[in-house]
Design a protein around this nucleic acid. Structure first.
Length: 462
DNA sequence: GTAGACTTGAA
DNA sequence: TCAAGTCTA
């Protein structure tokens, strides 16, 4: 009997538990369901959809080579999926349906509806696509709300258990023609920076681990340096499996005589798991709610001009503007800059963090609901383990510290290309005028004081 | 119940 | 130094 494997945000053949396990029960048939209107409602960016389409084409080609049938179905909304799947399973005489669970709410609801609808098919909902899938809980069996203790427990589990990548599916020995997929929903993306194939993603992983992993901790905070992995788009689409990342870290740490268990890049993967498990345990995070209930009462400012200036990279704060233009032009933003620009919107412009959250998703090629929401709530001081509300980033200081020569600013703010390093972080008014660069949209000192005061006045309990 | 700790900070 | 409160063992 045929085993159907439903791919969602795990668009890969390597290290794929559902593909691997399903094939042990019989021949597999792989499928993917496009839901462009649902994606649009979820703010999935054109760039992300472009990379997704490229990943799917790569998968379709490779499955054909392996004699494994692949079907691409399309509808508008998750709500239509159960009926569509029912029809598919009937036509293809499917006995079992396999998939990996996803964390966000709507996806979860969809899967439950599918399980109910497919009464003649055995549904195998495998654990979420995390590195550590075993429950990471406190001694009183509660989910962790603070990262560091979560990380310690996570590390312990990783040391105690063997997590190896799952092998690619085996050749099913049937001659199949190649298909050209027609993904009309695909958008433009920087395929020069993120080639769509899984092989390219794996190469990028190896190259990063071989050449950058060792200095990651020291260099990662400087957006002008190519020190980070830039693998996040592949992680968002699941083009790289978590155990494959671990195996790469372990291998190259071995080569370099370093202890993989305390690797700082691996720690960032713990953050990924941490934010995803929060969504599972605290459904309100899926529903536009802050984690800290009392912060619902924060009076965010209405400021269309400020919001637009932020979106366009015209705030008059060079590091913020360079960051936003990097996002707009490439679909990606360096982690340090995400913090600086999120802090700027939520604390200095004092605009609702959810507007920033949506804008990021609209533009990011690596937009992931859990990580994005976690990051924004951290910046806005509304989340678990959030920055204390009185901790407000000073964009000029951050700029001096992490882009001392203005190298990154000059790359994305050409108006300031000839400004000396000393002045580039906060150019004097006349110089701005000469360069055609905007004056600051807020007074930093005053905005900082106002933001802290607005939080201080909140009722203590909900 | 209590001690100690808490991603990335600013002045 | 500041500054608040919550989490975890």
């Amino acid at each position: 009997m045929t085993q159907a494997v439903w791919l969602r945000n795990d668009l890969r053949l390597d290290d794929h538990p559902a593909l691997s396990e399903a094939q042990q029960h019989g021949p597999i048939h792989v499928l993917f369901i496009s839901t462009p209107r649902q994606w649009q409602q979820h703010h999935e960016s054109p760039a992300r959809l472009g990379l997704k389409a490229a990943a799917l084409q790569d998968i379709a080609d490779r499955l054909a080579d392996l004699g494994i049938p692949f079907t691409l179905l399309e509808t508008d909304w998750f709500a239509d999926v159960p009926a569509l799947l029912q029809q598919f399973c009937q036509q293809q005489q499917i006995s079992d349906l396999w998939f990996q669970q996803e964390t966000p709410w709507d996806e979860n609801q969809r899967d439950q509806a599918v399980t109910v609808a497919l009464n003649n098919v055995t549904v195998h909902a495998l654990p979420h696509d995390l590195l550590v899938n075993l429950p990471v809980k406190t001694q009183s069996d509660e989910p962790f709300k603070v990262f560091t203790p979560y990380y310690r427990r996570w590390q312990q589990i990783l040391e105690d258990t063997q997590q190896s990548p799952y092998p690619e599916p085996k050749d099913q020995g049937v001659a199949l023609p190649k298909q050209t997929l027609n993904c009309r929903w695909a958008g433009e993306f920087r395929s020069d920076l993120w080639p769509g194939s899984e092989a390219a993603a794996l190469n990028k992983l190896s190259a990063f681990c071989e050449f950058k992993l060792q200095d990651y901790k020291k260099q990662r905070d400087f957006p002008g340096k190519p020190a980070t992995s830039t693998l996040s788009p592949y992680l968002a689409n699941g083009q790289l499996g978590p155990r494959r990342l671990l195996a790469a870290v372990q291998f190259f740490c071995g080569e370099q005589n370093r202890d993989w268990r305390h690797d700082d890049w691996l720690r960032e993967l713990a953050w990924r798991d941490f934010y995803k498990q929060l969504l599972i345990h605290f459904p309100r995070l899926n529903k536009f709610q802050p984690f800290k209930p009392e912060t619902r009462h924060v009076q965010w400012r209405d400021d269309e001009a400020g919001f637009n200036a932020w979106c366009e990279g015209k705030t008059g704060f060079p590091i913020v503007d360079a960051a936003m233009r990097q996002l707009n032009q490439t679909g990606w933003m360096h982690n340090r800059l995400r913090m600086i620009s999120a802090s700027f919107l939520s604390k200095l412009l004092f605009i609702d963090w959810r507007r920033g959250e949506d804008y990021f998703l609209d533009k990011l090629i690596d937009g992931d609901f859990a990580s994005n929401n976690g990051g924004w709530q951290w910046s806005a001081s509304t989340g678990v383990d959030a920055a204390p509300y009185f901790r407000v980033f000073n964009p000029t200081l951050q700029s001096e510290r992490y882009d001392p020569e203005g190298q990154f600013i000059k790359r994305f703010v050409p108006e300031l290309a000839n400004v000396p390093a000393k002045q580039i972080h906060n150019p004097p008014a006349e110089l701005r005028q000469q360069c055609g660069y905007p004056q600051p949209v807020v007074d930093y000192k005053q905005a900082r004081v106002d933001a802290i005061a607005a939080f201080k006045g909140l009722p203590q309990s909900d």
